[in-house]
């Protein structure tokens, strides 16, 4: 009897895991604050990148400030190959990177170990 219970519990657990991690995530893009000749956004680094998608305008210099709150070693480096950025983040010390997006599209950036990723949408 308890074996049956375990199987049912296992099935339930599997469904829960699947739904939680694979289910649709909130993929709304957050627009960067637009200035007259540049744009800025702040991204909190804590178990991932919040907001997960930042919308930028093409051709304008963008200042992105990362604030790392997560001690996980996965997240200590930020790598944006499409913009040539590679920096180390210290906990609770904001770091601003500046670049000008030249192409339209969706660009993925990742943590040092490429386990966490987030996107920059340029339009």
């Amino acid at each position: 009897m308890d074996k049956l219970l375990v199987v049912v519990a296992a099935a339930g657990l599997i469904i829960a895991i699947g739904w939680w991690f694979f289910g649709p995530k909130n993929n709304q893009a957050t627009a960067a604050e637009q200035g007259s000749d540049d744009q800025a956004a702040t991204i909190i680094v804590d178990g991932g990148y919040k907001p997960a998608i930042v919308a930028l305008q093409v051709g304008k210099p963008a200042h992105i400030t990362f604030v790392r709150k997560d001690p996980s070693s996965c997240l200590e480096a930020i790598i944006m190959p499409d913009f040539g950025i590679s920096e180390t983040l210290q906990i609770n010390k904001p770091l601003t990177v500046t670049f000008t997006p030249k192409k339209i599209g969706e660009f993925t950036y990742t943590c040092g170990m490429r386990m966490f990723s987030a996107k920059i949408q340029v339009s």
Binding site: W20, F21, G23, K25, D46, G47, G48, K50, A52, K69, D70, P71, S72, S73, C74, L75, M113, M115, F116
Partner: peptide, 20 residues
Amino acid sequence: GYPFYRGAWAAFKNRFASMD
């Protein structure tokens, strides 16, 4: 182990799963 647990929880809240 603390950083692993903290990281795993933060990721979990974001619906991410990582090495942690």
